[in-house]
């Protein structure tokens, strides 16, 4: 399988402090990759560098063989990269379907239409995506009026609506109840294999089941990488997590 995402020699520091000291990794097409590491390991910074929210100091990022590190965020999205946010980043006054419709519109040429109307098909498609995450009943409610767990699912629905080739999930389970985590887990497990998934998650019990391979990040470096069994068995993982 070809590499969906290849990162080489990626570096980023803030005011002299390296957040990403040197990261090289490769994610195969269709793979489910879990990225773990203690707080401050640089996980979210890594995502922000991948999407272009932050600009890198050095290194390369290739998406299906194409160098994207110099492209702006919105261009990377059009190359098939989508993400969710650890801190809910939705449009609170708008309805769920409007949120998802915005996501659909982002990849459509119609987003430049200045005097027309948004075709109803966008809302129909949005409701279809919302149905996939079990939110069809509240599709016409404003984001501000739905529960936290439902907002988490809207985050994922917005990313899925774009049928991304690579999907970055930043702590999709954060703050959810056990039951909600179960629901979301099967939702993530059901993402078609055309989409490569890279996920940051603290909830190991749930996340480890979803992952094909796991990368452990520590102080902005990859210290362990492998299958679940390999990573769990590696003494360096224990060292990071247990402090031995």
């Amino acid at each position: 399988m070809a590499a969906a995402l290849r990162i080489a020699g990626l570096k980023k520091s803030f005011g002299g402090l390296p957040a990403i000291a040197d990261v090289t990794l490769e994610v195969a097409e269709g793979e489910r990759r879990l990225i773990i590491g203690p707080n401050g390991a640089g996980k979210t910074t890594l995502f922000n560098l991948l999407t272009g929210d932050l600009s890198r100091d050095a290194g390369s990022i290739t998406l299906f063989g194409e160098e994207v590190a110099r492209l702006s965020t919105w261009r990377r999205c059009h190359r098939g990269l989508a993400r969710t946010y650890q801190i809910i980043t939705l449009f609170p006054k708008d309805t769920l379907e409007h949120n998802v419709a915005l996501s659909l519109l982002g990849l459509s040429r119609r987003r430049w239409s200045m005097f027309g109307r948004l075709p109803a098909s966008f809302y129909a498609d949005a409701r279809e995506v919302l149905a996939r995450v079990g939110l069809e009943k509240v599709a016409s409610r404003p984001i501000a009026e739905v529960a936290y767990g439902e907002k988490r699912r809207v985050e994922i629905a917005m990313a899925l609506a774009q049928k991304p080739r690579v999907l970055l999930l930043d702590e999709p389970l954060a703050g959810l109840s056990r039951e909600e985590r179960g629901q979301l887990k099967s939702l993530i497990a059901g993402i078609p294999r055309e989409t490569t998934v890279v996920m940051i998650e603290h909830d190991m019990d749930t996340a480890l089941d979803l992952a094909d391979r796991i990368t452990v990040l520590h102080y902005g470096r990859v210290i362990v990488e492998g299958t679940r069994a390999e990573v769990v068995a590696d003494p360096k993982t224990r060292e990071v997590y247990l402090g031995h």
């Binding site: 999407t51 272009g52 929210d53 702006s72 965020t73 919105w74 999205c77 059009h78 989508a82 993400r83 946010y85 980043t89 939705l90 449009f91 915005l102 996501s103 982002g106 990849l107 987003r111 917005m158 774009q162």
Partner: peptide
């Protein structure tokens, strides 16, 4: 920021 990530310039 989200708008950029959704593909908007």
């Amino acid at each position: 920021r989200r708008m950029s990530a959704l593909g908007y310039d």
